[in-house]
Simulated assay, not measured.
Amino acid sequence: MIVLRRLGTGGIETATMTLANAMAAAGHEVHLLVLKGQPIQQPSPDVIVHCRDIDREQRRSAAGMAWHLLSRLMLSPLIPQSGFIWQGWRCSRAFDAFVTDVEQQYGKLDQILIRGQGAFELLWRVKDPRTWRVVEAVTGRFPENVLGRWLTRCLFKNHRVISVSEGVKANLQAYLDAQGVSIETSHAIHNAVPFEAIRHSASAPPPDEIPGPFLVHVARLVPVKRQCLLLEAFALARQQGLQHRLVIIGDGSERARLENLSQALGIDNAVDFLGHQANPYPWMARADALVLSSRFEGLGIVLIEALALGTPCVATRAPGGINEVLVDEQQQLITDATPEALAAGMHRAVASPIEVQPAWIERFSERRIVSQFLDLIDDRQEPADANHA
């Protein structure tokens, strides 16, 4: 069973869909539990989807509504940042009951994966030994004081954790060490990428043809993706003789600001804002390079997708998994987070194209990643099997 708060179009949701579909394709029965709203994406028909707003359900009874009002009007204001504690207290118990119902109908679950901070908070009291918290990034940090340590302990103490990269694993461990919180065990398992599906999608002609050679950027238009730096670097690269256009695929709160910045930099006639595209792969496959300027990337799935299409990547150095994705010759295209360094990376990418090696992307294959998750089930069950024998 894989659990997440919402099933939208973001990175966590896409990675969850890929894993669920890959596990189902490998012959496993997969349950996907969405805790808020209806799925925007639809997984494979072989994946069993449950939409249960456990939080709202808990408020339907008189006792549940009384607890909700008590926590919201008294406990949360009294203890700052503790809202998830009181909410999760009842939601975790309801989740345990839901798991029991599922097992009575379908059979025993082997593994439960809870993905993302929002789901962690709703289900912080779940103690089922088959459960793993899958961490995409260390978000929702609490202050290093008595209250912060208590809140951190509630989310992580003695839990089993999977990080999507070694970088995230190290980042999480540093945070937990600072808070004096220990976890039961920790592993790093990368997100899987469906290479064949991406290549098939990339074969379609792009709806908007781009005149001449171009670079591509695919991300939400939000501050953490640092597109202001991207535009400043591109403007500098153009001043230095770069003839390429820049195609930006994605939408978000920063779009108007970025469009204004491109005008102020005098590059608006060379930058194409295409907005959100359900299928960005035709542009990614036809670009001379993908450029990423993020402050942080848990793994950097868009980099793996570009490599799967044979497109080299330029990226700014940042915490997370970028160094695990861009290896060997690609390391020379990881730059400092300055306009000058990123502009130089763009020039290097187009002047000396790097041939993408199959081994660079095989590490993220669905078959390999599914196997790593299944190995965790086997590791946990070996002692029990031996005792039973």
Rank of each mutant, 00 (worst) to 15 (best):
I2E: 06
R6K: 01
I12T: 07
A15E: 10
T16E: 09
M17I: 15
T18S: 10
A20T: 01
A20C: 08
G27P: 02
H28F: 13
K36D: 04
G37D: 01
G37T: 05
D46H: 12
I48K: 14
V49I: 05
D53I: 04
I54S: 02
D55I: 10
E57N: 09
Q58M: 09
W67V: 00
L69N: 14
L70I: 09
S71I: 03
L78W: 15
I79H: 14
G88L: 00
W89M: 15
W89D: 12
C91E: 01
C91L: 10
S92K: 09
F95R: 00
F95M: 00
V102I: 04
Q105N: 14
Y106E: 11
G107Q: 03
D110V: 01
Q111C: 08
I112F: 00
I114W: 03
G118A: 13
R125K: 06
R125L: 09
K127Y: 07
R130C: 03
R133E: 11
E136R: 10
A137V: 15
T139M: 13
R141D: 03
N145H: 09
L147H: 04
R149T: 12
R149N: 11
T152K: 00
R153W: 15
R153D: 03
R153F: 10
C154S: 13
N158E: 08
H159L: 07
V168Y: 04
A170K: 08
L176C: 06
I183S: 08
T185S: 14
H187A: 10
I189D: 02
I189H: 13
E196F: 06
R199I: 00
S201M: 15
S203H: 11
P211H: 15
G212A: 09
H217P: 09
R220H: 13
C228I: 12
L230G: 01
E232K: 15
A235Q: 06
V247L: 06
E254C: 05
R255Y: 02
A256M: 15
N260A: 15
L261W: 05
S262L: 12
Q263F: 07
G266M: 07
G266E: 08
V271P: 03
D272P: 11
L274I: 09
Y281H: 13
P282I: 08
W283G: 05
M284I: 03
A285D: 03
A287Q: 08
L290K: 04
V291A: 05
S294N: 02
E297N: 03
G298C: 06
L299S: 05
L309M: 03
P312Q: 00
C313T: 02
A315R: 02
R317H: 14
G320A: 03
N323V: 01
E324P: 04
Q332T: 04
D336K: 14
E340Y: 12
L342E: 03
A343G: 05
I354D: 02
V356A: 01
E362C: 04
V370K: 15
S371Q: 13
S371H: 11
F373L: 03
D379V: 12
R380Y: 14
Q381W: 10
A386H: 14
A389V: 10
